[in-house]
Write a protein that binds this DNA or RNA. Sequence first.
DNA 1: GTGCTAGTTAGCAATCAATGCAGATTAGCA
DNA 2: TGCTAATCTGCATTGATTGCTAACTAGCAC
Lengths: 136, 136
Amino acid sequence: MKSPTELTEAFRANGLKVTPQRQLLFRLMHGNTMHPTADALFSEASAQMPGISLRTVYQTLTDLASMGELRLIDVGAGAVRFDPNVDDHHHVVCQACGDVRDVYVAGSQQLRIDGLDGFAVDSTSILFHGSCAKCA
Amino acid sequence: MKSPTELTEAFRANGLKVTPQRQLLFRLMHGNTMHPTADALFSEASAQMPGISLRTVYQTLTDLASMGELRLIDVGAGAVRFDPNVDDHHHVVCQACGDVRDVYVAGSQQLRIDGLDGFAVDSTSILFHGSCAKCA
DNA sequence: GTGCTAGTTAGCAATCAATGCAGATTAGCA
DNA sequence: TGCTAATCTGCATTGATTGCTAACTAGCAC
């Protein structure tokens, strides 16, 4: 994800306005490696800007995602998580505490897929399940 | 997933009762390659047994899953899907029509994972996104 | 076959994530 | 300084899933 300053430019360039709510969310997401849910981010945002609406959090995250600045990740735990890391990477999830971490995977281009039967593959998501150092 | 007959044995062996509702669901899931949602299965079941409850469908699917007879798959499209194929396999999803197909992947043991940082990996889910032959 | 009892079912309420909607507010340009 | 389209908040709504409970029944004991 771009820096808050660059995002400000990018939003204006797209005809979108840059509000204090959005700026706060830009800051909260920039460099964030926690993979927060919308709700978690709403809590953090509320601490700094009481009265901000959960709706606004969803809206801004959706905007960022459709601009390609965020990736949505679904670890199958109810709520979607947001990842400002848009590099080509994948995730490990701790089955115990739900913690999610970014991992870089080499060799995924060499996977042999059998049974595709006419399917054209655009992208691949790899999710590793396990336990983190704390929960082991 | 075991055959309906074998499941009947297995359920009784676990102290679970074998009801007509469960037998119907055993039959509907056995060999099913559609990856149905609970709701889709409920529709099919209702056609053969009017009055069956969606709650019962969920309950039975959950029981089967916890006995290891079914796998839950989440393609990030709202509802969870159920897969009677419990072999070591993965999935392709058509972004257009939502169709899901089983694929067998060779080479997933050779993936090099960087950034694990103490995480112990138990299992891996690979989801391929693309378009099916019809939607291409 | 008859009864008993633990396990099941149906149906509805409740929860949780996410989106739709509308009136009040405001960023950003002229 | 004003204007207007974009945005915000708050609330209603949707969709998937689970919780709860009274009525029901599979399957064992007799």
